[in-house]
Design a protein around this nucleic acid. Structure first.
Lengths: 242, 242
DNA sequence: CCGGGGCCTTGACGGACGTCAAGTCCCCGC
DNA sequence: GCGGGGACTTGACGTCCGTCAAGGCCCCGG
């Protein structure tokens, strides 16, 4: 890839990312000059757990799996960072060792900032700090929500996860003029069921059984990684019951 | 209380709080002029859940209980904010409805900032934004840690909680000159066991049994709200095992 | 064509823990 | 002093779910 292409990449990374949305295009271009691109293939690590990295990364394309290893040796998947999302905040802010291992789930392109470069940017453009605050606040709210839900039964946590997923855009392959028969929303799981189970704090076996129960209740149908939500309000009702 | 006293209160609140530690004393005094003091007695609410409050509060003295109510109606205690800690970030940052109910656990004095006042302060003093970032990053790391631990058995979560508590300063009431007999560290639970159980995502009954098991194992002794750590390394070993 | 490994599912089993209930202790108000 | 209520503990019970095991399916490499 010629140099010019790479540079365009860097700029488009900066342009597309919420973190810098408060800047003018000219300012964004200046930011782009500081960024270091990083391309990883599936399975490669951005950083291991316990490393001392003060760099902050923004996902450009692809997905990065963030997972913790407990003292007991058990691993738990915490979240998956997709395009526009950031990782490495903790090391960037505190200088302490990284708490999570970051592994590319697919081929992934990152935009990496060194601590000093980004700190200088933040000092010059306070809007970046404000945007980071909003990001972190959002992450914190989401994590607290998951923590509050962690004691609910597996079926409920699975139902909640499904309701949070983006729906597939349906190609209307049936007769287009036919009347008001509502189509059930469908979605595609973007992670393996094993990984989803880990995020939800359970096991693949329990997850599998939960999906089977939801299917038996007529709430969903499962076809490999495609889930059809037959009764979305029924799924929501699970959250409220008991 | 005369006006002059109140004003001193406001300033000392600002002085003591990490959020403003990056400011000079003169700047801190200016911040103090913007603060609105709020005194609550035990049981009073700073705000309920779902309210729309964009104000950010700093605890001056006392403690504030932050709890969520799940759609099912179950309440879960998320954290307790003590002196120097902040609450209301989510509303302040997003303008959305409050997610947690905030209730004074004891007589509590707060320093409250309106959204606009604090936003203006942040714009003028970026160090405040940086300190908020560090605070939120810390909170996020702590919450993620608890989430990762949420599937461990109750005994382990209780042990971890105990190890996180500040120790009592021991008054050496025994013969001061006696040799190197190490005293076991002791701590005082600052919350009811019921509340601690809620924080740990379990029930008072299970918590009580966990303490009984830790006692039977010779790791601790319990005397009402005072816990003696007979074998701290044994408690830590619980975290790693299995 | 065959063999291995990963993902997923289903079954069987046991244990941890939530729930219900009863009982004690303590505090507080009448 | 007495009664009520809340915090805490202990017991009994049921169940959700984690673990172990086996089997199917798919993919890939030999």
């Amino acid at each position: 890839m010629p140099l010019r292409e790479i540079h365009r990449d860097e700029i488009s990374c900066v342009r597309r990312v919420p973190l810098f949305s408060g800047l003018t295009e000219d300012q964004q271009d200046l930011v782009g000059a500081l960024v270091r691109p990083l391309v990883l293939s599936a399975g490669e690590l951005v950083h291991g757990a316990g490393e001392r990295s003060r760099r902050l990364s923004v996902v450009h394309t692809g997905q990065v799996k963030l997972s913790r290893t407990l003292p007991s040796g058990h691993r738990r998947l915490m979240r998956v960072a997709g395009p526009g999302q950031t990782l490495g905040e903790h090391g960037f802010l505190t200088g302490g060792p990284t708490l999570e291992e970051a592994e590319a789930l697919t081929e992934t392109r990152l935009c990496v900032f060194s601590h000093d470069d980004l700190a200088a940017l933040v000092a010059e453009h306070p809007s970046i700090a404000l945007q980071m605050l909003r990001n972190l606040g959002q992450r914190l709210a989401e994590t607290e929500r998951r923590l509050a839900q962690s004691t609910l039964e597996v079926d409920v946590r699975v139902a909640d996860y499904l309701l949070d997923q983006p729906l597939l855009r349906e190609t209307s392959d049936s007769a287009p003029a036919t009347a008001s028969s509502a189509v059930s929303p469908r979605l595609r799981l973007r992670l393996s069921k094993k990984d989803i189970a880990s995020i939800l704090g359970t096991t693949p076996e329990s997850m599998s059984r939960a999906l089977a129960r939801l299917t038996a209740s007529g709430l969903i149908t499962v076809d490999a990684d495609v889930i059809t939500l037959l009764d979305a309000t029924g799924l929501e009702a699970l959250l409220a019951q008991d």
